[in-house]
């Protein structure tokens, strides 16, 4: 009896700690007052202003575009890595392959961002491309560090599932490619979708790497938001937060749905 009380208390306090700041943010987004902290009354004023703020809308569109594209590329390459690591025996310099595909998971974003920027500058000095940084360079950087997250999900899924199905299909005369496209990929499809969603969210949320690799005409949403709240508070950002948190949490729920679909 006593221990179950402690248990409920710990879980309640933990969840309270995790959700309280989010609720505070949503609460203040309905504040009429321009001074964020002084409550004046309930209003949707900042939501209206948000939708009329061209800078934020434009940044949002750029971010979604980059996130969708880089998630797609990262998913294709990540699936290839996950598949290679579990199913393909001969990988030249396998330790190096593992190093390349797992280090971006732990490397501080700042170091990654700096290395990408210096790479693009050096590349430009050598071959004259990319002449200026912008959406393309952010896209390349995001693909590079999202690959690792997809790869780890796919690797886990492939390690889980029974190889016999693939072998049975081979025995029945399917060739290698056909097994992959007709058996393996459909089975791991939920994990592929989960990987895409994760990569999409990571790209959408990234500030540090994008700050390094951005250029004229490529202010992503986090860059704009950061410039607004670095030194103070912004009622428009409050409204944006409420919408974005809601949307991202929905994406998160989809991720769980797909990632757990075939686990018992």
């Amino acid at each position: 009896m006593k221990s179950s009380l402690i248990k409920s208390t710990v879980i309640f306090l933990g969840l309270f700690f995790l959700y309280f700041p989010i609720l505070v943010l949503i609460f203040y987004s309905f504040n009429e007052n321009k001074r964020v902290m002084v409550w004046k009354g309930f209003s949707l004023r900042w939501y209206t202003e948000l939708f009329n703020n061209e800078q934020i809308i434009e940044a949002f569109i750029i971010s979604i575009k980059i996130a969708a594209l880089s998630a797609t590329f990262a998913t294709i390459l990540g699936v290839m890595i996950g598949y290679s690591l579990v199913r393909i025996r001969k990988i030249p310099f396998k330790s190096f392959y593992i190093f390349l595909s797992s280090t971006p998971l732990v490397l501080p974003e700042l170091i990654l961002g700096l290395s990408m920027l210096l790479f693009f500058i050096s590349l430009n000095n050598v071959i004259g491309f990319p002449s200026s940084r912008g959406q393309l360079t952010i896209f390349i950087s995001h693909v590079t560090f999202c690959i690792a997250f997809v790869a780890i999900i796919i690797q886990a899924r492939l390690t889980d599932f029974n190889k016999n199905i693939e072998e049975a299909a081979m025995d029945l005369g399917y060739n290698y490619t056909k097994v992959l496209y007709k058996i393996t990929l459909p089975i791991i499809l939920p994990s592929i979708i989960a990987g895409w969603l994760l990569a999409f969210t990571i790209s959408l949320d990234d500030l540090v790497v994008a700050s390094f690799t951005t250029g004229p005409g490529a202010n992503t949403l986090p860059i704009v938001v950061f410039s607004k709240v670095r030194l103070g508070l912004s009622p428009e950002v409050n409204a944006l937060s409420a919408i974005l948190m809601f949307a991202l949490i929905i994406i998160g729920l989809f991720y769980f749905y797909f990632n757990k679909k075939f686990k018992h």
Partner: peptide, 15 residues
């Protein structure tokens, strides 16, 4: 909560 924006969660503490 980990899925919702990192930057905005830090901003929440500022408030």
């Amino acid at each position: 909560p980990f899925w919702s924006s990192f930057l905005l969660r830090v901003y929440a503490w500022k408030i």
